[in-house]
Design a protein around this nucleic acid. Structure first.
Lengths: 192, 192
DNA sequence: AAAAAAAGAATGAACGTTCATTTTTATATA
DNA sequence: TATATAAAAATGAACGTTCATTCTTTTTTT
């Protein structure tokens, strides 16, 4: 596959179509022909931009993950206090899951199925380094619990996935009070 | 599909094969022919027990969910204190995710993709009524926070999914200390 | 010997991917 | 600036394969 100068538009349309169709029907019901049609492109054109279906999905995943991370750390600054930094990042993540729910739903699906290959999965994790650094600092300053990063992640960040998923499937509507309560629960579970 | 008197064994083998293959490769890479072969059965035989592939997956989901719920509430008794009841249920769920990790992984995949149809999903949720009842009681007795059940679930039960998923993919090995820390974080996040 | 259960082979549809061709764009020449 | 030409980008149709499902026959059970 050669470098293409033109039509980043088409590539974007393909990524967008992939997210949309995988969200609606799942990987197994998102055929290349349908992805092409949704992106207003010939099936053959997909192969000018991606090696094959697996490659398309991998690259979509990595790209969405990058958008997610950028969004999450947008308002964060390394000089902030640990508590303030955590609050900002947490609330940005919540924001992302509400406002960019298509992207968030796609990530949730990728993170819970064998649909993405291991190298791409590893690539996607890298972006969270800033959060790990923050926790490291928090542990040093004895502000957050001296426990594994997995536990910290599980109890402070991951519940958001479930919360937002529920929002999409049920009548439960999230409002500012819910968000504040959820943030409080998150902080409570990791602070010393 | 008629009622079959015989060979519950074959049905079980099919359910087991479905779980195994979906776990390894995902729904999209678990063809009926492969499921049949894994279960040591002819492809045609599947259709004596299930209407079609969707039906097979739906019923597998409902069955695994039932096993999960039975396991979770095995040691629970309605006359226990709210705190003790919660601890028992929580630890049984953790136990299930460690000891029956195949079942747990399958459920995680089903709960995060459009692979299961909505009626079956609804069916699967019903089983958690006992937990909702416990929380109801906890709120009345002013022992746990007066917040939405979704939030309670997200912060106390759901993080376990992530934790166990990590265990399967990384070097991170769960031990009793982790479990105790995690339980404490769970209880901290919901108790008043 | 009849009925139920299971099997393997067969079927049409749908899939990912490639091929042969056309359309568009960029470059060179006058 | 206008025209010719080469390269790049994009296409629709076609390919071989694999899929879910069904059909016909065989085996097992009653």
């Amino acid at each position: 596959m050669a470098k293409l100068q033109k039509s980043i538009d088409k590539r974007n349309a393909l990524i967008k179509a992939t997210i949309e169709l995988v969200n609606n029907d799942g990987f197994h019901a998102a055929p290349m022909s349908k992805i092409a049609k949704t992106a207003n492109v010939s099936p053959a054109t997909i192969y000018l931009y991606f090696d094959n279906k697996q490659d398309l999905v991998n690259k979509t995943y990595i790209e969405v993950k990058a958008v997610y991370t950028k969004y999450a750390f947008e308002t964060y600054d390394k000089n902030m206090s640990v508590e303030k930094g955590f609050e900002l990042i947490w609330k940005r993540i919540a924001d992302f899951k509400i406002k960019e729910s298509d992207n968030a739903m796609f990530l949730a699906q990728c993170d819970n199925t064998p649909m993405i290959d291991e190298p791409s999965r590893k690539e996607g994790i890298k972006h969270l380094q800033s959060l790990l650094d923050l926790w490291e600092r928090g542990k040093k300053e004895q502000i957050i619990k001296p426990i594994s990063d997995y536990l910290l992640y599980a109890y402070s960040i991951n519940p958001l996935s479930f919360l937002m998923m529920v929002q999409n499937r049920d009548a439960f509507q999230l409002n500012d009070t819910h968000i504040q309560e959820a943030y409080q629960a998150a902080w409570d579970s990791i602070k010393l």
